[in-house]
Amino acid sequence: MANGRTVLWVRRRYVGLNVAIAVVWLAFAATQVIPIVNGDSGTNGGHIFGLVLGVLIAVLAAIGAVVAFTSKRRRSMKRPSQRVEH
């Protein structure tokens, strides 16, 4: 299992990790376009399925990054107003 440091590292870099995952899946989808353009849809439409899957997962990862970023931003904006002055 992951120790506390690993969990904290992932929590701090969650937005960046989601963006990186989205970029990797977009690159995968781009590699599926080349055979489709050349007229090869793959066995049972495998390249088309790969293209659709890659774009779908990239969009979902990007949405996750946006949600995490706005959540972090809202949390950081609320903190100064919640302080109690002595």
Rank of each mutant, 00 (worst) to 15 (best):
Met1Asn: 08
Gly4Gln: 07
Gly4Arg: 03
Thr6Gln: 13
Thr6Met: 13
Val7Ala: 07
Val7Arg: 04
Leu8Lys: 15
Leu8Glu: 14
Val10His: 14
Arg12Val: 11
Arg12Phe: 11
Arg13Ser: 09
Tyr14Cys: 13
Tyr14Ser: 12
Val15Pro: 00
Leu17Gly: 06
Leu17Glu: 06
Asn18Met: 15
Asn18Tyr: 06
Val19Glu: 12
Ala20Met: 07
Ala20Gln: 05
Ala20Glu: 05
Ala20Thr: 05
Ala22Met: 08
Val23Lys: 04
Val23Leu: 12
Val23Gln: 09
Trp25Ser: 03
Leu26Phe: 02
Leu26Pro: 02
Leu26Met: 10
Ala27Cys: 11
Ala29Val: 13
Ala29Phe: 11
Thr31Lys: 07
Thr31Asn: 09
Pro35Phe: 03
Ile36Pro: 01
Ile36Asn: 04
Val37Leu: 15
Val37Thr: 13
Asn38Ala: 02
Asn38Ile: 03
Asn38Arg: 05
Asn38Gly: 01
Gly39Trp: 05
Asp40Cys: 03
Asp40Gly: 02
Ser41Ala: 15
Ser41Glu: 13
Gly42Ser: 10
Asn44Gln: 09
Asn44Gly: 08
Gly45Pro: 13
Gly45Trp: 12
Gly45Thr: 11
Gly46Pro: 07
His47Ile: 00
Ile48Arg: 04
Phe49Tyr: 04
Gly50Leu: 13
Leu51Asn: 01
Leu51His: 03
Leu51Ala: 00
Leu53Phe: 08
Leu53Ile: 06
Gly54Val: 08
Val55Arg: 00
Val55His: 00
Val55Asp: 02
Ile57Tyr: 04
Ala58Pro: 01
Val59Ala: 14
Val59Ile: 15
Val59Pro: 05
Leu60Asp: 08
Ala61Glu: 04
Ala61Trp: 06
Ala62Asn: 00
Ile63Glu: 06
Ala65His: 00
Ala65Lys: 01
Val66Thr: 09
Val66Asp: 02
Val66Ile: 11
Val67Thr: 12
Phe69Asn: 01
Phe69Gly: 02
Phe69Arg: 03
Thr70Trp: 07
Thr70Val: 15
Ser71Pro: 04
Ser71Cys: 10
Arg73Pro: 06
Arg73Ile: 08
Arg74Ala: 15
Ser76Asp: 14
Lys78Arg: 15
Lys78Thr: 11
Pro80Thr: 01
Ser81His: 12
Gln82Glu: 15
Val84Asn: 11
Glu85Asn: 05
